[in-house]
């Protein structure tokens, strides 16, 4: 059970991030979560959006380089130590995280994490067997 993440190549120059978010805004794309990895020359904007297909289409039309990747979204208790509990499980099973980012919503008791691993199926199995709440695309859209 994965959710779709859209990753966009953005140059590390003033205005480039504004430009890409503008075309998303113009098409009424709502971003649930967002993270940016950067080098001195460029960045990778990673986002979970309300409509991945539409986002991909408008990025394509605007000539952006992007990719769509299945990633895991999990809910954890919004309290100290809860991230550690999840990571401890992944550690135990020797699952490497490529990257991870967090987001919160209007729901006050839960925080959410996006996990990027090499093997989604294995990570899903391990996490769900340890009672970690893994979200579907539908769950995410209803947040």
């Amino acid at each position: 059970m994965t959710v779709d993440q859209i990753s966009i190549f953005v140059e590390n120059r003033p205005g480039c991030l504004a430009d890409v978010t503008k075309i998303m805004a113009d098409s009424q794309i709502d971003m649930r979560a967002l993270s940016i990895a950067e080098t001195p020359d460029f960045g990778i904007l990673r986002a979970i959006v309300n409509d991945t297909e539409k986002t991909a289409r408008i990025l394509q039309e605007a000539g952006y380089i992007y990719s769509t990747t299945p990633v895991l979204a999990i809910a954890i208790a919004d309290e100290p130590g809860s991230l550690y509990q999840v990571l401890a499980v992944l550690k135990e099973y020797n699952i490497n995280l490529e990257y991870v980012y967090a987001f919160v919503t209007r729901k006050e008791d839960e925080a959410y994490m996006i996990l990027r691993v090499a093997d989604n199926d294995k990570a899903y199995e391990v996490l769900s067997s340890h009672h970690v709440k893994v979200l579907s695309q539908e769950d995410l859209n209803q947040l």
Partner: peptide
């Protein structure tokens, strides 16, 4: 110029 084939969501791949 970046091309889709060279792009990845992970920095290490790029």
């Amino acid at each position: 110029e970046m091309v889709p084939e060279m792009f990845s969501d992970t920095m290490s791949q790029v």
